[in-house]
Computed example of a mutant assay.
Amino acid sequence: MMTSGSLLVLLLSVLGAEVVTRRLARPLEETARTAERLAKGDIDARAPITGPAEVAKVGAARNATGSGARRRRCCRVA
């Protein structure tokens, strides 16, 4: 049988996992969806620059990719 201390640790672990999921997984999922839109030709798609620094850097790098593609598209000579 679980003691009240064990139950408290379990509850805090579940809550901690939820916080990590919100801070890491969601911004990464949004960045992945943005990359998919870019692959389909939507060069105006923008990734969120949120979450921990490493996750925000991924979003910023993805956005720079789209900006470069837009500049190349605008400057192309037919």
Rank of each mutant, 00 (worst) to 15 (best):
A45P: 02
T31V: 10
T34C: 14
R76E: 15
R70K: 14
I49K: 05
S13Q: 08
A60I: 02
R23I: 06
I49F: 00
S67P: 00
T50I: 11
C75D: 14
E36Y: 02
V14G: 11
R72M: 14
R76H: 15
R46E: 13
R23M: 11
A32I: 10
K57G: 02
L7V: 13
T21L: 06
A32D: 14
V19A: 13
R46C: 05
E18W: 15
R72C: 05
A60R: 11
T3V: 00
R76L: 12
M1A: 11
D42G: 01
A25F: 12
L15S: 09
A35C: 07
P52S: 07
I43F: 11
C74E: 14
P52E: 11
T3W: 09
R26K: 06
G51L: 03
D44C: 01
T21K: 12
R26S: 07
T3A: 03
E30A: 15
L28R: 06
A47S: 15
R72L: 15
R71C: 02
S67L: 09
R23A: 13
R70I: 09
C74T: 12
R70V: 06
G66W: 01
D42P: 00
M1W: 06
R73T: 02
S67Y: 00
A53C: 00
S6V: 04
C74A: 10
K40G: 08
R70Y: 07
R76S: 14
G41E: 01
L10K: 08
C74N: 13
G66V: 01
E36H: 02
A17H: 07
A17G: 15
I49T: 11
L28Y: 10
I49H: 01
E54L: 05
R72A: 15
K40L: 08
A69P: 01
R22Y: 10
G5I: 13
M2N: 01
T21Q: 09
N63I: 03
L11E: 12
G59M: 03
L38R: 07
E18Q: 13
A56F: 04
K57A: 12
T65Q: 03
A47F: 08
A32Y: 12
V55T: 13
E54P: 01
V14D: 08
L10H: 03
G16T: 12
D44R: 07
R62P: 00
L38Y: 07
R33F: 10
N63F: 09
G59R: 01
T31E: 11
A45W: 04
L12P: 10
L24M: 14
A45C: 09
V58Y: 06
N63L: 05
R26A: 06
E29C: 02
E30N: 13
M2A: 07
A60Q: 14
A78S: 11
C75P: 00
I49S: 03
A35K: 04
A60C: 01
D44A: 10
T65S: 04
R23Q: 12
S13N: 13
T34A: 15
V19W: 13
L15W: 12
S67T: 04
T31H: 07
G68M: 10
R37N: 00
